[in-house]
Design a protein around this nucleic acid. Structure first.
Lengths: 107, 107
DNA sequence: AAATATACCTTGACAGGCGAGGTATATTCT
DNA sequence: AGAATATACCTCGCCTGTCAAGGTATATTT
């Protein structure tokens, strides 16, 4: 496993929540968007993405609904819940703290 | 597993290398030092610490020697090798990049 | 007709973190 | 003197997030 993967580990859910806070979206799109946002430096792998969706839904942080496409493949959309908004803020705070700590420890 | 643990995951080796760059040290001491450095907000658990030592030694990033204590329990000291210095710099650079990326994705 | 793009999903392996347990020596407390 | 604590080392086996590999279905492009 690359170092990058391990450094990014644990941020998946926060990244998804953050992205969904902008607007509801679906798996395939999120995957593409993250790659674009990072200039292809980071790909949120599909298997990782879907297992994160399951955890987030299980925790009540997101809810899902099917899109009403009349053409093309069906899309399962995800939306952040109130609980998800809270979780995002909590994650964010934790990240700020962790960032400071790691910076300190790696000095 | 707490969120913090997952966020910290993957930084263990870098944290150890960084610490050893200051001065050679041994397991028990490093464990205490990290706790002190972080105001007890983060404990590098012993099992985690020792498995990281094994990996670092395996990779040639650290070498070990026994202390010459005439009293108290014996101490196994660890020292960073040239390869370890390189690895530290590489880790550090990756961290700076990852940090920027996560900040961007969590915006 | 075949290839590609869009879109969903599951399974099983892998690796790092760590709880729980173990050993041994020295010091402090009652 | 005996018990408890601190110092110091270590291993085993579970847990969990990541991801390679595989699968399905529809629409478009070649």
């Amino acid at each position: 496993m690359s170092i990058t993967s391990d450094i990014l580990r644990g941020h998946t859910e926060a990244i998804i929540l953050s992205h969904l806070l902008e607007k509801d979206s679906y798996g395939y799109q999120i995957n593409k968007d993250i790659m674009k946002k990072t200039d292809n430096r980071y790909e949120l792998k599909e298997a990782t993405l879907y297992s994160a969706f399951r955890r987030l839904e299980q925790a009540g942080h997101i809810r899902t609904y099917w899109g009403d496409e009349t053409t093309g493949a069906r899309r399962r959309y995800y939306a952040v819940t109130d609980s998800g908004r809270q979780a995002y803020l909590s994650y964010k705070k934790e990240w700020e703290e962790a960032k400071e700590m790691i910076d300190h420890l790696l000095r």
